[in-house]
């Protein structure tokens, strides 16, 4: 097993190195950075939904929480290393608590969807109402609808005056995504990841085999939230402002669309779906003929109806049909030889 993991790592490094080298030649790095961040956000839901079977309608909650944690901590601390770590930890702990509440209560699909959606809404409403001067954490004012601007952006660890921005920031984000991707691959190859997939396929069977399904689901949920939190912190650095819109329903909807379009149950699908659709949205935003939301909605409906498995699995099976080995032909071959043997014998 370790052999194929190291092959995975080498392949990831090679492909991401080539992409990091080529992509800035085609798209401006400023746009590219946000595509990479969205890719990471898509991967976070792709992990818990595609491999764990947990449909979270509120992945935006952890994204926003990561961004807000970073902004508030950065204002109070005045450098970026500790805030980055906090931005991963706070959403993970929050998700662990929320997940424990849901999974130990044996809530499934629709109810899970409602609760995650409602929690996102609570955060959205609460953050929108924190406009007054009494809502202060340390030195940071929450700012209500206007959000929090003007916090310390990413700097070289240990040197608060050496900011990382522009092209350099793109490379940081891209490398971060590659590292997260490798970590997710390793997680899925570990026994924890295999049991998670088993839970997705048949929860009762895994429980009867003696695994604690509730604890494992909670842990996976927290891992997903940690990745979303990291994406949120990177997004805060990119936008240099955090607003309650990070928690909005449309943000949650978009993450789900990315995963559906890219392909569930794959690691690459959600990343490609996120980056591709975000870029499409960026291009569509430059024209005013057709409304952006309309096209996004249409894409989601069409994919659910006609390609519910998403682009990446569909392309993979197309590849297998066109170029791969043909198991069907081989079976015929075997049967034919067997028949011949039987005739001869």
């Amino acid at each position: 097993m370790t052999g194929s993991l190291s092959r995975d790592v080498i392949l990831t490094i090679l492909v991401s190195a080539i992409l990091i080298w080529i992509m800035p030649l085609m798209i401006a790095t400023y746009t590219l950075t946000v595509l990479v961040i969205y890719g990471m956000l898509g991967l976070s839901l792709g992990l818990i939904w595609g491999f764990g079977g947990i449909l979270c309608f509120g992945q935006a909650a952890f994204f926003g929480l990561g961004a807000y944690t970073y902004a508030i901590a950065a204002i109070n601390i005045g450098e970026s290393t500790v805030p980055m770590i906090l931005a991963v930890l706070v959403p993970a702990v929050f998700a662990a608590l929320l997940g424990a509440m849901m999974f130990y209560g044996r809530l499934t699909d629709v109810y899970l969807g409602v609760i995650t959606l409602v929690v996102t809404l609570i955060l959205f409403k609460f953050m929108n109402s924190t406009a007054g001067p009494q809502y202060v954490i340390g030195k940071a004012r929450m700012g209500g609808f206007n959000g929090i601007p003007g916090f310390q952006t990413l700097n070289v660890p240990g040197d608060p005056s050496a900011f990382i921005w522009g092209d350099a920031y793109f490379y940081v984000c891209a490398v971060a995504l590659a590292i997260v991707f490798v970590l997710v691959s390793a997680l899925l190859r570990s026994s924890f990841g295999r049991v998670a997939v088993g839970i997705r396929e048949n929860e009762t069977r895994i429980a009867l085999m003696g695994y604690d399904v509730r604890a494992r689901k909670t842990a996976l949920f927290a891992v997903g939230a940690a990745i979303a939190g990291l994406a949120g912190a990177l997004f805060a650095n990119w936008g240099e402002i955090v607003t309650p819109n990070l928690f909005s329903l449309s943000q949650s909807a978009e993450i789900i669309i990315w995963c559906i379009v890219g392909g569930l149950g794959t690691r690459l699908g959600p990343i490609l779906g996120a980056a591709g659709l975000a870029y499409l949205k960026f291009l569509l935003g430059q024209q005013s003929m057709i409304d952006n939301t309309l096209i996004m909605g249409l894409i989601l409906v069409l994919f659910v109806l006609f390609l519910p498995r998403g682009i990446v699995p569909a392309l993979a099976s197309l590849w297998r049909i066109s170029f791969g080995r043909r198991p069907l032909g081989r079976i015929h071959q075997v049967r034919r030889t067997r028949n011949r043997e039987r005739l001869n014998g």
Partner: peptide, 13 residues
């Protein structure tokens, strides 16, 4: 749920 969410975005647009 997903398809109707798509429809909701479609109608908003």
């Amino acid at each position: 749920m997903l398809a109707t969410w798509g429809l909701s975005l479609f109608f908003i647009g």
